[in-house]
């Protein structure tokens, strides 16, 4: 078993399952977080992630197969997806992929789900498809406000993490999103994004 990545909330290992490569995602105890709170977070997110990974496939969103779940160890064993994350792509391909992220996000929303952590690192381009990963913050919801938070987060990540191609990437994302949700649906949600931003600090000019 080889440690691939020390993520923010879990350690990602490359391992084997029935002769094939597999990913083991373990949410380890964080000694600096209150023990009861830490346990609650690790448990709900592990369960949530396993459920949501299976659920989104019903919407036609590519995601890794869940091979095993061990809640006593806060661990999920899943299919290994070879490929590159959108975040590491060159600007030209990144802008293109953001369109696909847009349509995947819209598919989730259309089916009453949010990803909760839409960043360019959470999509892997593989076999000509885009796979969504990291669904620990995902949830089922019918609230437009929750959909708006997804959009806001993605725009924040583009303008901070991909400053130079942010505008083109955002336009591409919106095109993909609108292609699934439609103009009126997008207009409704983007109005809520503006509402959320106006609640933030120093957002409005007094």
């Amino acid at each position: 078993m080889k440690l691939l990545k020390k993520g923010a909330e879990a350690d990602i290992y490359l391992t084997e399952h029935r002769g094939r490569r597999a990913i083991l995602k373990v949410r380890k105890r964080k000694p600096y977080i209150n023990a009861a709170l830490d346990e609650r977070i690790r448990k709900t997110r592990t369960l949530r992630e396993a459920q949501m990974i299976s659920l989104v496939k019903e919407f036609g969103v590519p995601a890794p197969l869940v091979l095993d779940l061990d809640i006593t160890k806060y661990a999920i064993l899943m299919e290994y997806i070879p490929g590159t994350t959108v975040g590491t792509m060159r600007p030209f391909r990144l802008v293109d992929a953001c369109g696909q992220i847009g349509s995947i996000t819209a598919l989730l929303h259309k089916n009453g789900a949010v990803h909760g952590d839409i960043t360019t690192s959470n999509f892997i381009a593989s076999r000509n498809r885009l796979y969504v990963i990291d669904l620990g913050l995902a949830s089922r919801t019918q609230r437009n406000e929750d959909y708006a938070v997804d959009l806001r987060l993605f725009r924040e990540i583009l303008s901070s993490g991909h400053a130079k191609s942010a505008e083109a990437a955002w336009r591409s994302f919106v095109r993909g999103y609108v292609s699934v949700i439609g103009r009126p649906g997008y207009a409704r949600i983007s109005k809520i994004v503006a509402d959320i931003e106006s609640r933030g600090r120093y957002a409005t000019v007094v």
Binding site: S160, G161, R201
Partner: peptide, 24 residues
Amino acid sequence: GGHTMLLAFSDRRWRVFGETLDVT
């Protein structure tokens, strides 16, 4: 009291990588 933000510098500006959506 005025801010709760995560920032990193790139391309001539301090960029926001996370912040509070309401109170600080």
